[in-house]
Design a protein around this nucleic acid. Structure first.
Lengths: 221, 221
DNA sequence: CAATCATTCAACAGAATTATTGAATGATGG
DNA sequence: CCATCATTCAATAATTCTGTTGAATGATTG
């Protein structure tokens, strides 16, 4: 039986990790942090939590080892501890896509119909950026753009897109991107641009995946 | 704000999946099921739960979509719904290896020191099996062996190994395997065999990974 | 060195999860 | 068509998790 106790401890430890992701708010926090490190207050606002509550969630995930933090001036910035954490959330999304009927309904009903066009692959976009053949449009909020973005990308947050359309050359192809495969910003931007006659497509996934693929990045700390 | 509600629903749905793995017993159940389908009663006994309790855990994971079940005679057999579920548990293990101090301690203290020798890779073992140069030893319990095993493998459960040593030719190299990277059976078998003068090594990972790699398998339903 | 302020802590009530018990279900197999 | 029996359901108590409130911490920054 001595060979079973450490096994139990192992499963219990791994279960702690899964449990730490087993909460909508925490999962959302991790996705935001996949974009780059954030302060407690910024996260609280983004996810819609009180600061104290966000702090508790963050503390829990730090204790488990999913996140690490560092001080920058008065703020404490959190980030994922390791790329394997993002692999884990990616695996979770894949299971969700295939298995969870609930999630399937959301994805199928909400995301699919927005843009039937094939997204542009990262490799293809990297090549077209190098050739200068494309306008890269980052529709995330300004602070996320500042924390890191694709080379030569211009930043127009989705909410400002309608009134800033003149900043975008109409003659060139546009590739829009945002936070990741489940972020709606780029979908909506592409839909809007196409209605206005722009040649817009969407990048597959988003900024974190671009960086994870070791493709060039500008800006950030 | 209408773009946030489905997002919340998505994260909530994914969190349900993570929560379903956020329990040591459920995680252990999934690992057992990675070996092949099992009845409720068999799982309950294996994990050390009452049948009713095991049934509840199974029902939960089936509801979430991690498991599916089918009837076979009087029994109901459960299995993982999809390979992506095993990918998810693998990602969980990787995070655990790198991040969770608790788990690191267990792995480092318990598993590492057992067999400093390099394990035999699947590819290498597949080749040596084909050449007939090696004794393949399956040290899992008999029922798990019956549900599927490596070609030409002989089955001696770890507990019987000491008294059945004479069944193993001492002249040939032995490769032992068990359930997977965190199963201790093969580690202990190799340690025991080496003390008795056998040339024993361990297969990397275990049976589920062998099957997942689409390498030949014997037995099972 | 002292004021500031982002973050964390502590304590609580409400909600959710877990394991147990014993009964109910319902398909099998004769 | 009925007895069997593996599985599921229902109800309960114990435990754990969540979010709120308000106070405490403690490093920064002037």
């Amino acid at each position: 039986m001595s060979s079973r106790n450490p096994k139990r401890a192992l499963f219990a430890g791994l279960a702690e990790i899964a449990k730490a992701l087993g909460h909508g708010h925490r999962l959302e926090i991790v996705e935001v942090l996949a974009q780059g490190e954030r302060s407690v207050e910024a996260l609280a606002e983004h996810v819609g939590l009180s600061v104290a509550n966000a702090s508790q969630h963050l503390r829990l995930m730090r204790r488990i080892g999913l996140l690490v933090s560092r001080r920058d001036g008065k703020r404490i910035l959190y980030r994922p501890s390791d790329p394997s954490v993002l692999d884990l959330t990616a695996a979770l999304r894949r299971v969700g896509e295939r298995n969870a009927a609930e999630v399937r309904a959301v994805i199928g009903g909400y995301f699919r119909q927005r843009d039937a066009l094939e997204p542009v692959s990262r490799r293809e976009l990297a090549r077209r950026i190098k050739d200068g053949l494309v306008t890269v449009l980052d529709v995330r909020p300004t602070d996320e753009f500042a924390a890191g973005h694709l080379p030569r990308a211009i930043n127009i947050p989705l909410r400002q897109l309608t009134r800033r359309l003149r900043e975008i050359p109409k003659s060139r192809a546009i590739v829009a991107y945002c936070r990741g495969p489940y972020c709606v910003l780029a979908y909506e931007a592409v839909a809007l641009l196409r209605r206005r006659g722009f040649k817009a497509r969407r990048l597959e996934d988003g900024f974190p995946e671009w960086r994870a693929a070791c493709l060039p990045v500008e800006g950030g700390g």
